[in-house]
């Protein structure tokens, strides 16, 4: 009698151990797959031009000494700092506009209910599903009429169409999950709508606000189509387009600088994630699943 549970327990433990080994093996393969391109970009950016051009040595490691010359060149002798500044301005302004529009609308849609508010909430969700590639041509005309073609203000105008719907949507979810008792308590405490929003809703839904901010930041930082379509002058360019178009000068041996530029341009969102990943993931998963 006693032998049966003992073998049962060991086989259970053995099962678990095998499951664990399989899981780690699986994760190991995936991590290599996901990380080798950025690793290779980093390695390239640290090599001398001579080593990059040399075909015999192992491309995956730096054999000929690490150099920061690509980064130096980028920061001192190219338009890269200009791109960085433009991107920062565009992103900051877009994030600010997005958060104001989204938070106001989400508060209204989550709590105040008016005629047509349900339709508008659905509209927000549908707008979120509209990709940038659907409307870039008519928006090109609109940007042109407004005289914003070839300036980064065109991006400030059109980026909110990509950021606001999702941010509103997840803020509706966060605001909606605040217990109604809390507004009622604030109402009895004497708060008006603005005070309710600023002193109760925003602080309580801060994780959602952070998630929405990161989303808006990422979208504004990473978009490629709009700047490629609307901006031609180097002085108005943002990082994505600037790096892809101006750093490639037909020079075969410029790979080091290109990789350095791509990595530097990607650094701000990556750093932001490193610190705030949990907020963003929570916001994203709740936004996509909450109805």
């Amino acid at each position: 009698m006693t032998a049966v549970p003992v073998t049962g327990a060991t086989s259970l433990r053995a099962n678990r151990r095998w499951a664990l080994i399989a899981a780690y093996a699986c994760l190991g393969i995936f991590v290599v797959f996901f990380l080798f391109p950025p690793y290779y970009m980093l390695v390239t950016s640290l090599k001398t031009n001579a080593e990059i051009a040399e075909l015999a040595s192992n491309p995956w490691i730096v054999t000929d000494g690490v150099t920061f010359s690509h980064y130096e060149h980028l920061l001192t002798e190219s338009s890269f700092p200009r791109f960085f500044l433009n991107t920062t301005i565009v992103t900051v302004v877009v994030v600010a506009i997005t958060m104001v529009i989204s938070v106001l609308a989400a508060y209204s849609l989550a709590r105040l209910r008016f005629w047509g508010s349900g339709v508008l909430a659905t509209g927000v969700f549908l707008t979120y599903l509209v990709p940038d590639t659907l409307l870039f041509i008519p928006l090109f005309k609109i940007v042109g009429w407004l005289g914003l073609l070839d300036t980064y203000w065109s991006l400030i105008l059109v980026y909110p169409t990509l950021t606001v719907p999702f941010c509103t949507w997840i803020m509706i979810g966060y605001f909606g999950s605040i217990p109604r008792e809390l507004d009622e308590a604030a109402l009895i405490d004497g708060a008006n709508h603005l005070q309710m929003l600023l002193k109760v809703f925003i602080p309580v839904a801060l994780p959602g606000l952070i998630a929405a901010t990161i989303f808006a930041f990422t979208v504004a930082w990473a978009n490629f189509l709009y700047p490629l379509a609307y901006i031609y002058s180097e002085s108005e360019m943002v990082l994505t387009v600037g790096t892809v178009t101006t750093l490639i000068k037909g020079d075969v041996f410029h790979w080091g600088g290109l990789m350095a530029g791509a990595l530097l341009a990607a650094a701000p969102p990556v750093i932001l994630y490193a610190f705030l990943m949990d907020y963003y993931i929570a916001g994203l998963t709740s936004g996509a699943t909450k109805g």
Binding site: P37, P38, A222, F224, T243, L258, A262, A266, V270
Partner: peptide, 10 residues
Amino acid sequence: VIPPALSTLG
């Protein structure tokens, strides 16, 4: 996390 236009360069 990396803007796709940039990782695609890699």
